[in-house]
Amino acid sequence: MCLVFLALLLMPLSSFAQSIQVTDDTGRTLQLAQPAQRLISLAPHITENVFAAGAGDLLIAAVKFSDYPEAATHLPRVGSHTQMDLEGIVALQPDLILAWHSGNPRAQLEQLERLGIPIYYSEPRSFAEVAENLRRIGTLTGHQATAELAATELEQGVAAVKTAHQGLRPVRVFYQVWEQPLMTINREHIIHEAISLCGGENIFADVDALIPRISQEAVIQQNPEAILGGGMGEANRAWLDNWQRFESLQAVQDNKLYFIPPSLLQRATPRMLEGTRLVCEKLQQARGH
């Protein structure tokens, strides 16, 4: 009888000891009774980070354009990041959903929350926050060691880029996110940090919106030394070439229009370090080196 009573007392203590608790990018506390085993990712950058943290084998589905690493292309799709397939998500019985706070439809996320499915909200806006996301994913899935290694490698790589480009002549940069409507980034965006690490000056840093819509006239007025852009796909530089008709731009006169593959700079993942190094290389060319 005493042993049974002791076992009953110890059961809640054991459960509490195994529980997992993290704070996500919105400041919300998420608690799991045990490491998650069935994950669904609702954004391509989240899918990448789950794999980087060593938990890719736990993903049971993802949204469209989750195309890195190659294993991610074989995952079942549950819609896009802007329109999820809620029935498909629920049918898969995930024990953790990883959502993009600013990119996924709030109404659909609230529906999932009402069903009691745990949701981790991702919204990294700096390299430090990408590293922290890796660590949190590692904690939530029981892959702390792999996640810590990935996070540390990212932090060390960022520090090395910063050290290598300190004191260089600043280069005034326009970064193009989209063409129609024409869009760029302000200082709160992680791409701004990438440009800054390379000694670049984001000419629209002080605009209020995170991803502001701007006019061609505003770009011409700011007259950047270099224009960086991605485009539709990993090798299509048509957006950059369209600036050639604005011959008054210094970047056009000096032929400083540089293509950066969008997946290397427009997804908040460890691969952004590769994209940042490419930005640094282009800005060195802009300096005449």
Results as ranks from 00 to 15, higher is better:
Ala36Pro: 13
Arg106Ser: 05
Pro105Phe: 09
Met11Arg: 08
Arg267Cys: 06
Pro262Met: 06
Arg135Gln: 10
Ala150Tyr: 05
Leu249His: 09
Glu70Asn: 09
Arg267Asp: 01
Gly233Trp: 12
Ile97Asn: 03
Ile260Gly: 00
His192Met: 13
Ile117Ser: 14
Arg187Val: 13
Ala7Ser: 08
Glu281Tyr: 11
Met1Thr: 15
Ile46Ala: 02
Thr23Pro: 01
Ala107Cys: 06
Ser196Thr: 13
Arg277Asn: 06
Ala55Met: 10
Phe16Ile: 14
Gln176Tyr: 07
Thr269Gln: 09
Gly157Asp: 03
Leu13Met: 13
Ser126Gly: 03
Gln31Tyr: 03
His101Met: 00
Lys162Asn: 06
Ser196Lys: 11
Glu123Tyr: 14
His45Thr: 08
Leu154Phe: 07
Ile190Asn: 00
Val161Gly: 06
Leu75Thr: 05
Ala151Arg: 13
Gly288Tyr: 07
Phe16Met: 14
Ser14His: 11
Leu197Trp: 03
Ala107Tyr: 09
Leu210Gln: 12
Ile20Val: 13
Ile46Arg: 15
Arg287His: 04
Pro224Thr: 04
Gly54His: 02
Thr47Ile: 04
Gln18Ile: 05
Gly229Asp: 00
Asp241Ile: 12
His74Lys: 15
Val4Tyr: 06
Ser102Phe: 12
Leu112Ile: 11
His143Arg: 12
Leu3Cys: 07
Phe5His: 13
Phe127Gln: 10
Ala91His: 10
Asp24Ser: 02
Ala7Gln: 10
Pro262Phe: 06
Gln111His: 08
Pro124Asn: 11
Phe51Val: 00
Pro261Gly: 01
Arg271Glu: 00
Phe174Glu: 02
Pro262Leu: 05
Leu257Phe: 02
Val78Glu: 02
Glu110Tyr: 09
Ser102Ala: 12
Val158Cys: 08
Leu3Ser: 12
Gln83Lys: 07
Asn49Glu: 09
Gly230Lys: 12
Glu110Gln: 15
Leu168Met: 01
Leu265Thr: 00
Cys2Trp: 02
Leu58Gly: 05
Leu197Ala: 01
Ala131Gln: 09
Arg28Glu: 13
Gly199Asn: 05
Glu48Trp: 03
Val78Cys: 01
Arg237Ala: 11
Leu30Glu: 05
Leu92Arg: 09
Pro261Val: 08
Phe127Met: 10
Leu265Gln: 00
Pro105Glu: 08
Gln31Gly: 08
Tyr175Arg: 14
Ser263Leu: 04
Pro270Phe: 11
Arg106Thr: 06
Ala43Leu: 09
Glu153Gln: 15
Gly27Ala: 00
Val177Asn: 05
Glu48Tyr: 05
Ser126Trp: 04
Asp206Ala: 15
Glu110Ala: 15
Ala99Trp: 15
Gln253Asn: 14
Glu201Ala: 14
Glu155Ala: 13
Ala164Ile: 01
Leu96Ser: 07
Leu278Ile: 15
Ile185Trp: 13
Gly138Glu: 07
Leu134Gln: 10
His101Arg: 06
Val130Gly: 02
Ala71Cys: 07
Leu257Asp: 04
His45Ala: 11
Arg114Gly: 13
Ala107Thr: 12
Ile60Asp: 06
